[in-house]
Design a binder for these strands. Sequence first.
DNA 1: CCATCTTTTGATAGTTACTCTCATTTGAGA
DNA 2: TCTCAAATGAGAGTAACTATCAAAAGATGG
Lengths: 218, 218
Amino acid sequence: MTPEQPTAALPDAPTNPVQALLEAPLSLRERKKLKTRQALRREAYRLFAEQGYQNTTVEQIAAAAEVSPSTFFRYFAAKEDLVLTDEYDPAMISALLSRPADEPFLTSCREALTGLIRALLQHERQELLTRVRLVTEVPALRAGLDRAGNNPRELYLSVLTRRAGIEEPTYEMRVTAAAIGAATIEAVLQWAKTDGREDIADLVDHTFALLGSGFAGV
Amino acid sequence: MTPEQPTAALPDAPTNPVQALLEAPLSLRERKKLKTRQALRREAYRLFAEQGYQNTTVEQIAAAAEVSPSTFFRYFAAKEDLVLTDEYDPAMISALLSRPADEPFLTSCREALTGLIRALLQHERQELLTRVRLVTEVPALRAGLDRAGNNPRELYLSVLTRRAGIEEPTYEMRVTAAAIGAATIEAVLQWAKTDGREDIADLVDHTFALLGSGFAGV
DNA sequence: CCATCTTTTGATAGTTACTCTCATTTGAGA
DNA sequence: TCTCAAATGAGAGTAACTATCAAAAGATGG
């Protein structure tokens, strides 16, 4: 059994997933699972910082977190997932869906994105920076971004589809989701590139303005 | 030593890479290398068709092509590369660079892309279709698209940079290349999805019009 | 507190993509 | 034909996964 994302299981999760984790009343079993998951991630990041991502084996991570390698793979389907998965998708989806349905999707994305990131930065700025930096530096992680669930493309696409009240997304939706998703990734990577000094809202505004203009001037 | 792409080594490759392969005067050694490469790919695709991509091992492919597994990896750095690498990049780059430098990049891409694909379809339609279908169906391949060299993003970015006569691409260029690159992939995937029935020029036109309009109506 | 049921865990063995090294073969060029 | 460089094959090794199964530990009803 793959342990499910904690927030996804909650009936009405607050918009801030961090709070969700803290507030939720958990059974002993679930608290242990959470601790294991956190320990795995914490030790992994420590080892990554010390010796690099590639030079750190899953075996080492499991040992540091004092679980067996088997258990590691029960928590993270792949080593990549230590860095690539997060629990923010539900928040982003609800932020997007709460925008008016007739608003240009680009605008919805801009607003939802800046709002969500602002909230995250308050609590997890450093961790976020570390993660994104890892993604920029390790080719394997960059590649993993395109895997199911890790790419904003799919998130955007699901919202577009649901917002239109249809089953299968149209081709225009796929193109839109892919392009805005790719731009979103660039914005986040750029933010990490400047060590988070660049204001994320400005960055997103600038990026999406470029998209909205049809790449005017390029 | 990794064997380099045949066309890349030629001083002035014709626009059609297929012809390039046929016309080039090759030494016995290079002809053998070419034959080995072709045999590996041919046997690989045959096995993929029979038993699927995941169920086919590198060992099987090497055996079918009558080379050792060691040799396989001298020709293809990864199993993915059997499907993901091609020799069209130089042609695409030169097509892009031959467009006027002050033309909107989106237009340059549209023209270069339709031209290149049209040429390819004449000779390698079936193979192209098979390849793209594989990419759509195998998650691992889809992910590999984001790896160095396989994504149009990097190609676009290099052209943008060179065209501007600068060393490091600007952020706007990165966003543009990423977004147009993602849309390009969607277009190609869509083409394969309709089994190549949809006219590729129409598809590209339509796609890039959407991008140029700033996703009007979505 | 106990007995039972279910979930989580660890141990083990296996697969496969990929790397490294070194000896052998084979084409190139004089 | 001789010599050199490039290409190959063989073998050993690494590490990310996968599958299976028995043991441990939390949940639950009495």
